[in-house]
Design a protein around this nucleic acid. Structure first.
Lengths: 212, 212, 212, 212
DNA sequence: TATGAATGAGTGTTCATTCAT
DNA sequence: GATGAATGAACACTCATTCAT
C-alpha cells in the first residue's frame, strides 16, 4: 500500500543505488547461465535468483517475469554481437568482397553465440513480444540489404529481374537458417566451405559474376 | 520428465475394435483443432478429450501424452501433403521448369497448411523427438536435391564451383524459410512474385541461365 | 438392469461351466504371480487379467476386487501348506520331540512360501477383512497350543506359574516372527540353528527340562 | 515411483526463519493427527496441509512427500519414547529385575503410543526406506541384548546351549509382537499378567531360575 | 461368458507471484 | 532494497469399474 511510485515501469527497470545495479546485473548474468543450461521453457525464476545469489523475491524488484529478463539478456548479447559496422570502416567497396565480409562476420558471431542464438529461435516460437521485436529487427536488416541490391541493379551490376526486397529477404534468411543448422543443430559443415558456398550463391543469384 | 520407458505391457496406439478406431480418429481430429487454436504449449489434454467428446481418461487408451498425439496429427497431415512425387509423373525434364514446379507446389501446400506448419516449427523448438524426426526428413529431402544438382553439374549445366550438398541445404532452407515468413508470419508477399523470385534465385545460383 | 441373479455372492464365486472354472483358476494363478512380483499395493487388476490371458472385464465375473482375489489366492496357498496334522499321525508323544516337529515343519513351510507369507503380512496391514481372518486363525492355533500347555502343567511337566494362553501366544508369535525375519527379511540364520534355538527356548520356557 | 534423486538445489527440511520453523512443526503435528486418524495409505497431503492451516503448496517447502514427513513424525515420536536408558541409571543389577524393568518400560511406552506403533508396522510394510531404518534399529537393540546374554552365560548364570544372538532376536521379537497384539490389535490382556508372563518366559528361557 | 473400450473421480506436484518482516 | 515463506491455481495421469457388443 502507500507506495510512492512515480512510474511502474521505471521502478522495475532502473535501480537507483549501486547495490541495486549490482543485483540487477547479477540477475541478468545468472539468467543467461540458466537459460543456456535449461532452455527458456524449463528455466525457473527461482533458479535464476538462486544462481544470482539473491532471494527469490528479489527478482521482481527488477523484472516482471521471465520474458522481461530474457529481453534484458537478449539486449545485452545483441550489443556484444554488434561491434560490426566494420563494413563501413573497412573501406571495402567491391560487392563480392563485401558479401564475403558480411557473411563471414555474421557466421562467426553466430557460431560464437550459438547457444544464445538457438535460444532466441526457441523463445521467438513461444513469446509473442520477443518474436515481434525479432521480426522487426530482421526486417530492418533486410531493408538495408534490399537497398544495396537496388543500388547494384541501378549501377547495372545486378540482375534487374530480381525483386530487391524479396531477394534480400530470401538470401538473408538463407544465411541465418544455415547458421542455425550448422551451429545450433550442429550439422557438420566446415566453416570455410560454408562461407564459400553462401558467398557463391549470393554472387550467382545477384548475377554479380560479370562484375570482375 | 522425458522418461524413455519402453512400454512393455501397454498396447497403446492400436485399437482392436471399430469403435476404438473411431475414438482414436476423433482424438486426432480434436487434437488438430485444439493445437491450431491454442498452440502446442497451451493445449491441454483435457481440452482435446472434451473436443473429441470422450472422457479425459480415454485419451490415454491411445496416446501416451501430448507429444505422441502431436506426432499422430503430424503424420496424418504429412500424408495429406505428400500427393507430390508428381514431378516425376509430369514428364517435365527442363531443370528450370522443374524448379518452378517444385517451388510452386511446396509453397502452395505450405500455404494451405500454414497453421500446422507454424505449429511444426514451434514443436520442433520444444520437443526433442519431434525435432529429430523433422531434421532427418529434411536431410533426406536435401540429399535428393543435392543429387539433382550434382547431375546438372556433371551434364555441364550447373556451376561446378558449388558444393552440391551445402547448396541444396541452403536453397531448400531458403524456400522453406520464406514459406514460413510469408504464410505463418504473414509478411505480405504476393504468391506469384514470391515464386518468381525464388525460382530466379535458384536458377541464377545454380548458373542454369545458359540452359536456354 | 433386469438381471436374473439369485445371489450376488454366488454369482461372483461359483462358475457354472467348465470354461468358467478354467478362467477363474487362471485368474487366481495369475494373481499369485502378479502379487508375488509387484506386491499387493502395486498389483493392478488389469495386470492380473492380462497375465491370465483374459480381458480386463472378465475379472469381475469372478471377483469383486483385489481383496477378494487375494483371499482366493490365500486360501489356495493355505490349503497347500496344511498337509500337516502330521503331528497326530506321527504318533510322537514326547513334548520336546513334538515341539521340534512342529517348529521344524512350520519353518520349513514358511520358508517354502516366503514370498506369499510376506505378502500376507503386508495385506494384513492394509486390508481389514484379511486381517480379521488372519487373527482368528492365529487365535485358534494359539488356543490349541494353550490347551497343550495346560495339559503339560496338569501332568506336572510344565511350569505352572505360566499363563497358558499368554504363553502360547508369546511362544507362537515368537516363532512366526522369527520365520518372518529369517525368510522374508532374509536375515542370515542357518536353518538348523534357528530350529534348535527356538526349540530350546520353548523347552526352557515351559520348564520341560526335567522331562528327560 | 520411489525415485532416488539427489536434491541438489532444494534446501528442503531446514527452515531459515522462526516462522518457517513454526510452519514445519505445524505440519509435523498435523501429519501425526492425520496419520493416526486415516492411516498411512489413506492420508492425503492436502489434508495434512489443511490440518496444519497452511496452503497445500507449503507442504513442499519442507517435505518431499508422504514418506519424508512420516519419517519426521517417526523421529519425533522416537525421541519422545527414548527417555529411557534409565535402566543403567536405576542401578539395578539383578538380571531378573532388569528384565522386568525393561519389559515393563517397553510395554508401557508401546501402550502409550499404540496408534503410532501400529502405524510404524503398517508403513514398514509399505515403504522400503522406512523398513530399512526400522530393521537396522531393531538389530542394534538385539545386538545389545545378545551381549547381555553372552555375559550371563560367561558368568555361569544362563543356559550356555543358547545362541546369544538368535535368542536375543527371538525373545525381543516375542515381546514386541506381544505388544503389538495387545495394544494395537487390542487382544484383551491384563497389563500385569502380560508383563509377568513375558518376564517368566525370559527368565525360564535363559535358565536364570538358579539365580535366586 | 468374454471382450475391451469408455469412464471420471481423485491427488500429487510445480512454480510464478505476493508480501510481511 | 532484500528476504524467503506462503500461496493456490492448474493439470497430467492412473486405474477400478461398468457395460454395450
Amino acid at each position: 500500500m502507500a507506495k510512492t511510485e512515480v512510474s511502474v515501469t521505471t521502478t522495475r527497470t532502473e535501480p537507483r543505488s549501486a547495490r541495486g545495479i549490482r543485483t540487477r546485473n547479477a540477475l541478468i548474468a545468472a539468467a543467461r547461465v540458466v537459460f543456456e543450461r535449461d532452455g527458456y521453457l524449463d528455466a525457473r525464476l527461482a533458479d535464476i535468483s538462486a544462481e544470482a545469489g539473491v532471494a527469490s523475491g528479489s527478482f521482481y524488484t527488477y523484472f516482471e517475469g521471465k520474458e522481461e529478463i530474457f529481453q534484458a539478456v537478449a539486449e545485452q548479447v545483441t550489443e556484444e554481437m554488434v561491434h560490426p559496422h566494420l563494413r563501413a570502416r573497412t573501406g571495402v567497396t567491391d560487392p563480392r568482397e563485401l558479401i564475403d565480409l558480411a557473411n563471414r562476420e555474421y557466421l562467426r558471431a553466430y557460431r560464437e553465440n550459438a547457444k544464445l542464438m538457438g535460444l532466441f529461435e526457441q523463445v521467438a516460437q513461444v513469446d509473442e513480444d520477443f518474436r515481434k521485436v525479432r521480426i522487426e529487427r530482421a526486417n530492418a536488416f533486410v531493408r538495408r540489404n534490399a537497398k544495396m541490391i537496388r543500388d547494384l541493379q541501378d549501377r547495372g551490376l545486378a540482375d534487374t529481374e530480381l525483386d530487391p526486397l524479396l531477394t534480400a529477404h530470401a538470401l538473408s534468411g538463407m544465411v541465418s537458417r544455415m547458421a542455425y543448422v550448422a551451429f545450433v543443430q550442429k550439422a557438420p559443415m566446415p566453416f570455410e566451405r560454408l562461407v564459400a558456398t553462401l558467398n557463391r550463391i549470393w554472387v550467382n543469384a545477384l548475377g554479380l559474376t560479370a562484375g570482375g
